[in-house]
Simulated scan of single mutants.
Amino acid sequence: MMFAVYASAANPNDPTAGLLIGERPEPSVPDGWVRVHVKAASLNMHDLWTLRGVGIKADAFPMILGCDGAGVLDDGTEVVIHPVINAPGWRGDETLDPKRTLLTERHQGTFADSVVVPEGNVVAKPTELSFVESAALGTAWLTAYRMLFVQAQVRPGQTVLVQGSSGGVATALIQLASAAGVRVWSTGRTEEKRALATTLGAHATFEAGTRLPERVDAVFETVGKATWSHSLKSLRPGGALVVSGTTTGADPSADLQRVFFLQLRVLGSTMGTRQELIDLISFLRLHDIRPQIGLTLPLPEAAAGFAAMQEGNTAGKIVFTR
């Protein structure tokens, strides 16, 4: 048996009601898979969605939570986990596999003493980053990297708007874009959150919904209903809106007249490829970037981290340690 934080069952209305902390069976290691002894694992909104029963079948419970992690293999190699699990034999962009899954949807997650993943789902941990910092890379930072450089194809000198300023993806977007020579604007609900964005490299910050001084080349969305209209109105003609999340709901007005008249591009983005994770790590090393960590807790105190995320009390990534 091993220590783990897991979901016992789905609860759409009270997600943390199904959160349990205790012992789970040690995982077996199939051929072609490897065991990672987890040193640190980061919390994502995906974990709250799992507790609500989104993206997971009822018969998959109990499910150890956690998409992201960093740790060591049985031979002592230090690694970062790429959480996108592909169907056997899939070739090409891992995020486009129609049968892809993430850890915690079908396979047990990283909030445990150990996790098993396909051997292609680990990459070398950068020596410059701690295990805590490395644990932030697989979902939030990889998502931000793909949104910026693959989907939006942002160039140095352009101006972008990041909706939000304190969540894991938002802080990653701000740090990555500013390091790449992009002018970064960010919105935030509180003065403290806007101040954090400035510290991370945002060139200007605004209260949520504020009309901007000028329209931007790209907007990055993880919020959804609450900010969608503002995002579309903030784009220059031909600009790109890249969306990777809908924390306030997934049913915004499409405002299709604005989309077609201004020839706006609306692009979805989900996670990133293994190669993009390698490229992200290289970028962080080249620019001496350290992921913003807002809260670090030992795994037995994970419930406090879930509560902080559920209440929106974030200032970067929430990471659990072993």
Rank of each mutant, 00 (worst) to 15 (best):
K39A: 12
N13G: 11
M45R: 14
D47T: 00
M45S: 08
L19S: 00
V36R: 05
S42V: 03
V38C: 10
W33E: 15
L19N: 01
K57E: 15
L19A: 05
P25I: 05
H37T: 10
S28V: 15
M45Q: 09
P27D: 01
V36M: 07
H46Y: 04
L48E: 07
W49D: 14
I56P: 10
V54M: 13
A9C: 02
L20W: 03
V36D: 07
V54D: 04
E23M: 03
G53K: 09
H37C: 07
V5Y: 11
A41M: 02
Y6G: 02
R35Q: 14
H37L: 11
L19E: 12
A17W: 01
G55W: 12
T50E: 05
K57G: 10
S28W: 01
P25D: 14
P15R: 06
P27C: 02
T50N: 02
W33R: 11
G22P: 10
M45H: 15
I21G: 00
K39T: 03
G53H: 09
R52Q: 12
V34E: 07
V29P: 10
A4H: 00
A9Q: 14
K57M: 06
W49K: 13
A7W: 11
V34Y: 04
L20T: 13
Y6K: 04
P15M: 10
K57S: 11
P25N: 13
V38F: 03
D31H: 11
P12E: 07
D31A: 15
R52K: 08
D47S: 10
S28M: 11
P30H: 07
G18K: 10
A17F: 04
L51M: 07
N44F: 07
A40P: 05
A40H: 03
T50R: 13
G18P: 11
H37W: 05
M45E: 00
V5K: 05
P25W: 06
F3Y: 14
S28D: 14
L43F: 12
S28G: 12
P12R: 12
K39Q: 15
G22H: 08
P12C: 08
K57R: 15
V29A: 09
N13S: 14
G53C: 10
N11C: 11
F3G: 00
V54N: 07
D31C: 02
D31P: 08
G32F: 14
V38Y: 06
V54Y: 10
T16M: 14
G18A: 07
A4D: 06
P12T: 14
G32Q: 10
